[in-house]
Design a protein around this nucleic acid. Structure first.
Lengths: 136, 136
DNA sequence: CAGGATCCATAAGGATACTG
DNA sequence: CAGTATCCTTATGGATCCTG
């Protein structure tokens, strides 16, 4: 039996896509602001101290860096190690769970490499059509 | 020649991870708010009208829906078709470029399925350690 | 050094009402 | 129906100062 497009569209009216969309949960976890640069840095360059991260990310403020690191630690994606010395030393490294995101990031890189140019082109064409032809 | 961790960390100080992180460009394109539910819906249920989308997404307001649809159209991920009738009819469908995100979404779903529970568990353990043991 | 606390600017998003 | 326009609330991030 073939499911028609109309049947699928009728069904669409009964689901809540925020819940139905199965990737929604990841967004808050790995794609909050600053999280990908942090994870990427820790994955590429290994364990780093707080100040190292701040220098590496460059445009992030200590407050926001702290917030994001806490969230990532709470979600189990990074590991925070506190060394009780004077002055104190704290090191962050990516966890196994964090490393499990690698294939995902790889897929993303591939998409960027293959399709970002197409997006740029689409934008130029869209913007070029400033004299709206119809229906705007 | 083996690149040491220290060498890599030293190098990290000289790059700008916002630019170095190769997936940064995708975030604004496909992971802006509401974009994944929209793309997911159009990909799953096919072409839909404005009101259908609004009913499907349920908690989105027309203003925001319009904004997101414009952005997706500009980026070439969806196609907008205007039918000059009375009342007017507008249909949205996913483009080939938008469909090229399918493997990405699939990878995401897999990660969610396999690892979301671990995140939940990490959160509970983190929250359970309210009596901060050290370094907080 | 690694942050916590505080205050402030900006902007994204929601609610509501209205139009071609 | 498919949006626009307007107003307003809230969330996010930046700047600054301070501390164990």
């Amino acid at each position: 039996m073939v499911e028609t497009a109309d049947a699928r569209r009728a069904h669409a009216a009964f689901v809540q896509p925020e819940q139905a969309c199965p990737i929604a949960p990841v967004l808050d976890i790995v794609f909050s602001r600053w999280t990908t640069p942090i994870l990427w840095t820790l994955n590429e360059y290994g364990r780093q101290r707080f100040m190292e991260l701040q220098r590496t990310i460059a445009t992030i403020t200590p407050k926001v860096l702290t917030q994001r690191l806490r969230q990532l630690e709470r979600d189990g994606l990074i590991v925070r190690t506190y060394h009780p010395e004077v002055p104190p030393r704290v090191e962050y490294e990516i966890s196994d769970l964090g490393r499990s995101l690698a294939p995902l990031f790889a897929t993303l890189s591939e998409w960027v490499e293959g399709n970002l140019a197409k997006v740029e082109q689409a934008r130029q064409e869209f913007d070029a059509a400033e004299q709206r032809p119809a229906g705007r």
